[in-house]
Write a protein that binds this DNA or RNA. Structure first.
Length: 603
RNA sequence: GCGCUCGUAGCUCAAUGGAUAGAGCAACUCCCUUCUAAGGAGUAGGUUGUGGGUUCGACUCCCGCCGAGCGCACCA
């Protein structure tokens, strides 16, 4: 259990004993170090109901907490401001975090808060036949991060992807293929990327025709019916296109370092959804209106939505209704998290309301998270008009820029005498990982709800609060470890004779890692973890710049002289600093991994 | 028109009802004969759209106004 939870438990008990009551107080990590490592507002909350001054109550809490000082590793307890109880952790307790990291390694930061829980996450949801644009990349990045955060809480997580392989958009794409100068047979031998591009172009053609040409529109509607009826005349190109799309998507997932456990298709859940709707039509949940079957959301302060259209085909809504039970059959979950763009937030409210009247136990377990839209300077993306940036384009572009950066750094005049950082053979792989890191971090550092104004130069950064900065800091730790090893030095968790302020600041930050992970998971906010990691990297870089971590030999002509340093006079200091460096490296790596961001050893 | 979301530094964004509203970018100063300068140190930049209210305490909660985005019937 992390220190914060221990304090919370202890304080709760103290309040119970003192006042025989329960209140919702918080234990915070103050921004200002003078306010302690942890702080609680319990006294402020209790003041009014107890009819006492906040500082008086704070005093009582302080007194009781004194008894647990030893057990909790508290150095001192202050009362400050309006009645805050500020808690300072002892140097010995801080120091213990190094041992914890050393022991837990890759599992440092994990906990068992959701142990035994089954969680199903659904995200990305690209539609076959259409482009995989940067909005999908965003959904995928957020979904993967949340999935990993959940898993770090001890939950069993299944990632699923729901794909619209049936419906009007597919019919539009098929129309586009049938009316494309380039026949589908002609792209048979092309790469999967080109096949995907062909499908995307076909969709754009079909979508345009649907709006501009009445004849085409009628034809597309016919094609749509045929697909639902699995008409042999259309199924061959349908299956071909769908297969290509799915293969293409899978390549992107692999590139992003993730994979789904299960795929669901609209074509598979549509019938079940329709049956559910018709079944509950009789029970009055749904109503007939203008030839369609609707859910009267207006009755519940929402808006009405069509579930089965006048052509007797299930809409997205009905299909989604069929999806929920299908997911539950696949994996009987305790919680179902669905991550989509926030443009369908209200639609989801209607859907969940309808589901609550049909399968209330499933509706209760379902959480919808709407992430912001990726906005381009040119306006909203539209796969119909071609104003899209594909995910693949973005990944390639970021990789290219990372590669250029490597070249630039290697050629830099002031550093020409230094050994090449990344071997030629590794440069492409490093570029790929740094590019992905830059993109994912850019998407994750912001809160999930808001839109992302996307322009490459402003959004994808390799410096400052950016993915590569964190990757770079990790590389520094690894580089130091390697250098130390070559000099025969090993990290050792020994108490140094003195601490510098940079070291204490780092230790104080490290103890909050698992708390940050838990908080990010509980609030569906990977950005909190991103922020934590950035702060950690900043603190480490300040430490790095101001303190000598290992002793260094300097070559002066032919003579090799070793600078005498205080590090060599007191062997505990370099050992401790190395241990600290290793711990920071491990924590950065664990944190980045939780965000789905790859690390590299050199860059 | 109704509903949802949002409005914080020049720009992009943070900030569980808590203490002096924080970063990054851009601008301006400095720092590579110390371990990777994709780095570090510093300066400047704010009436948190606006007017009320609740609270010991409001960027955060409530109401009004102004402005933006999204959604409101057979697309997903």
């Amino acid at each position: 259990m992390d220190i914060k939870s221990q304090l919370q438990t202890q304080l709760k008990q103290i309040i119970q004993e003192l006042f025989d009551t329960e209140v919702s107080f918080s234990v915070d990590v103050p921004e200002n170090a003078e306010h302690g490592d942890y702080s609680t507002n319990a006294a402020l909350i209790l003041a009014k109901p107890q009819g006492k001054s906040p500082r008086e109550i704070a005093g009582q809490i302080q007194q009781r907490l004194e008894n647990s000082k030893q057990e909790l590793g508290i150095e001192k307890i202050d009362i400050a401001g309006a009645g805050f109880v500020n808690i300072f952790i002892s140097q010995e307790k801080l120091f213990q975090v190094l041992t914890e990291i050393e022991e837990k390694k890759d599992t440092f930061g994990k906990n068992e808060l959701l142990s035994g829980k089954k969680i199903i996450t659904e995200f990305t949801d690209p539609n076959p036949f259409k482009e995989f644009h940067i909005g999908h990349l965003y959904s995928n990045t957020v979904g993967e991060a949340i999935s990993r955060l959940y898993a770090a809480q001890g939950a069993e997580v299944k990632r699923v992807c729901y794909q619209g392989d049936i419906g009007l958009h597919v019919a539009k794409a098929l129309y586009g293929i049938l009316n494309n100068e380039v026949k589908i047979e002609d792209v048979e031998d092309k790469s999967i990327e080109e096949k995907a591009k062909y499908l995307g172009q076909s969709y754009a053609k079909g979508a345009t025709a649907y709006e501009e040409n009445e004849e085409a529109k009628a034809e597309i509607i016919e094609i749509n019916k045929k697909v639902f009826a699995k008409d042999a005349s259309i199924m061959e190109i349908y299956e071909k296109g769908k297969t290509w799309s799915l293969e293409y998507f899978n390549n992107i997932y692999a590139r992003l370092g993730m994979q789904f456990d299960q795929f669901f298709f609209e074509s598979e859940v549509g019938e079940d959804g329709k049956k559910l709707v018709l079944g509950y039509l009789e029970k009055g949940v749904f109503e007939e209106s203008e030839g369609a079957v609707i859910f009267p959301g207006e009755k519940y302060g929402l808006h009405n939505r069509v579930f089965i259209n006048a052509l007797d085909l299930p809409t997205y809504e009905a299909k989604e209704l069929g999806l929920a039970p299908a997911k539950y059959d696949y994996f009987p979950y305790d919680e179902s998290v669905i991550i989509t763009g926030n443009e369908i937030n209200e639609y989801f409210k209607v859907l969940l309301k309808a589901l609550s009247l049909i399968r209330p136990e499933l509706a209760e377990k379902t959480v919808h998270i709407g992430h912001g839209m990726v906005r381009l300077p040119q306006g909203k993306m539209s796969s119909r008009t071609g104003n899209v940036l594909t995910g693949e384009w973005l990944l390639d572009e970021a990789k290219k820029r990372a590669y250029n950066k490597i070249q630039e750094v290697t050629r830099s005049e002031k550093r020409e005498n230094r050994e090449a950082r990344v071997s030629i053979a590794d440069q492409l792989e490093v570029s790929e990982k740094v590019g992905i890191g830059a993109i994912k971090y850019a998407l994750l550092k912001n809160g999930i709800g808001g839109d992302i104004a996307f322009s490459f130069d402003e959004s994808i950064s390799f410096e400052g609060n950016a993915g590569p900065y964190l990757q770079y800091t990790y590389v520094r730790t690894q580089s130091l470890m390697e250098k130390a090893k070559n000099q025969g030095m090993t990290p050792e968790i020994v108490t140094p004779t003195t601490y510098t302020s940079e070291e204490t600041v780092l230790l104080k930050h490290l103890i909050h890692f698992s708390e940050a992970v838990a908080y990010a998971a509980a609030s569906y906010s990977p950005n909190h973890l991103a922020e934590y990691l950035f702060a950690l990297a900043q603190k480490f870089n300040a430490f790095y710049a101001n303190q000598q971590i290992i002793s260094v030999s300097i070559t002066d002509g032919d003579n090799v002289s070793v600078t005498p340093s205080k590090l060599q006079l007191d062997s505990t200091i370099p050992k401790f600093r190395l241990a600290l460096t290793q711990s920071v490296g491990q924590t950065l790596k664990n944190g980045l991994t939780l965000l789905g961001i790859p690390t590299v050893e050199k860059m």
